[in-house]
Computed example of a mutant assay.
Amino acid sequence: MNVWDRRARPAGIAADLGLGAVFAAVLAFWASRIAGSWGGGYWQFGCAAGAAVCVIALVRRLDRSRAAVAGLAVAVAAILAARFAHLPAEPGPAMVLGLSVLVGSAVRTLPVSSACAIAAGGFAVVACSLLSAHASSFGVPAVTMLNGAGWLAALVAGLCPRLLAARRRAAAEKVRRDERLNLARELHDVVAHHVTSIVLQAQAARLVTRRHPEKTDASLADIEAAGSDALAATRRVVGLLRDVDDAAPATLGPERLSDLVRRFDGRGPAVHLRLPEGEGQGESVWPPEVTSTVYRVVQESLTNVSRHAPHARSVTVSVTQDREVVTVEVVDDAPSASARHHRRGGYGLTGMRERLDALGGTLRAGPRPGAGWSVLATLPLPARKRR
């Protein structure tokens, strides 16, 4: 697959086809104006230079930086040629449009230093247009005003999406960072749980050794297994330690899924909770990091329902477990609404996805066929919990 195939998606190709049609129309219009006012073949140079910049703009996806530099170089060369050969002022409208596309695209996507250099190059072209410009009753030549307007439009078209994307990335990163800190603060609980188990088994082993020395090996094997579990659980959580500060610990407390559902059920649609059969509060048999993650996924999903699906009549929370995986699914029956689909994919789910990724799980969220919304999370169990 070549570079064009990788970078130019169908929507971009369609947009470029439309842009090419606009370029052709502007070139034809400008050629007729030059032919009418200057006569002869004066239109040929301007149209050739403008067409060259327009073609470069159409293939900018191959390399936006080089395309912008090439377009600016053609524009400067056209200005100098028009100045010394006494040709119509350059850049013309088609070239201005092509340069606007190149500069706007570069400002939007390139690294800051490259984007600033391209923007400065565009301003230099605006200044250079004074060399080939003809006097105007407004004091500023028309070609310079046209180029200045195109340059400003390119900056706005490039900077607005760039700043918006940066804002979204910053918000998403804050959510990820907060989720990592929450997990890091839960590390104390995870370690305490497993170390307590080891201590209890060690105490039991001492009693067994005194009364039944032949059972010492079995007791030591249990302690070794508990230590392995503690090490595995710690490794799964400790990798998320990032920039720990003095903020207050964030823990879930003793609440269980049934308590969470009961609270939500009183102020929203009816909630039906399905837990693994025969286990009641089934989450209690899982490792602490699994329990807290299941809780947080259900909590975030129910919060999204209350915020973004006010017309939902019921919500079903299903928690199932096989030998290797815990699956959590939260579905509602709210009527379809295109605007809601965008709101339901917020930053809360970004934090949940960060947590699940760290533990080897997956998260899928999206509209259901017909109506409603579904959040589906899968979380692998440690080897000893699969038995």
Score class of each variant (00 low, 15 high):
Met1His: 01
Arg9Tyr: 08
Ala11Met: 03
Gly18Val: 12
Ala24Cys: 11
Val26Tyr: 02
Phe29Gln: 10
Ser32His: 14
Ser32Asp: 15
Ala35Glu: 13
Tyr42Ser: 14
Ala48His: 13
Ala48Asp: 12
Val55Lys: 11
Ala57Met: 06
Leu58Val: 03
Val59Phe: 13
Arg60Glu: 13
Leu62Ala: 09
Arg64Cys: 01
Arg64His: 03
Arg66Ser: 05
Ala68Leu: 02
Gly71Cys: 03
Ile79Asp: 07
Leu80Thr: 06
Leu80Ser: 05
Leu80Lys: 02
His86Phe: 14
Pro88Lys: 09
Pro93Gly: 09
Leu97Lys: 05
Ser105Glu: 07
Ser105Arg: 03
Thr109Pro: 05
Thr109Leu: 13
Thr109Glu: 15
Leu110Asp: 07
Leu110Cys: 06
Ser114Glu: 14
Cys116Gly: 02
Cys116Val: 12
Gly122Ile: 02
Cys128Gln: 07
His134Leu: 05
Ser136Ala: 11
Ser136Glu: 05
Met145Ser: 06
Asn147Gly: 12
Trp151His: 02
Ala154Met: 07
Leu163Glu: 10
Ala165Cys: 02
Ala170Gln: 12
Ala170Trp: 12
Ala171Pro: 01
Glu173Ser: 13
Arg180Tyr: 07
Leu181Asp: 13
Val190Cys: 06
Val190Phe: 04
His193Ala: 06
Ser197Glu: 10
Ile198Thr: 06
Val199Gln: 09
Ala202Cys: 07
Ala204Tyr: 02
Ala204Val: 02
Arg210Ser: 11
Glu214Pro: 02
Glu214Ala: 14
Asp217Ala: 10
Leu220Pro: 00
Glu224Trp: 04
Glu224Met: 04
Gly227Phe: 07
Gly227Trp: 06
Asp229Tyr: 01
Ala232Gln: 08
Ala233Glu: 04
Thr234Leu: 05
Val238Trp: 05
Arg242Pro: 03
Val244Lys: 11
Asp245Asn: 15
Pro249Gly: 13
Leu257Pro: 00
Arg274Ala: 12
Glu277Phe: 00
Gly280Lys: 06
Gly282Glu: 01
Trp286Gln: 00
Thr291Trp: 04
Val294Lys: 02
Tyr295Asn: 07
Thr303Arg: 15
Thr303Gln: 14
His308Phe: 14
Ala309Tyr: 09
Ser314Ile: 00
Ser318Val: 12
Val319Arg: 02
Thr320His: 07
Glu324Cys: 05
Val330Pro: 03
Val331Asn: 08
Val331Glu: 13
Ala334Ser: 14
Ser338Val: 06
Met352Asn: 10
Met352Arg: 09
Asp357Ala: 15
Arg364Asn: 08
Ala365Tyr: 04
Arg368Leu: 10
Trp373Met: 05
Ser374Val: 00
Ser374Asp: 06
Leu376Trp: 09
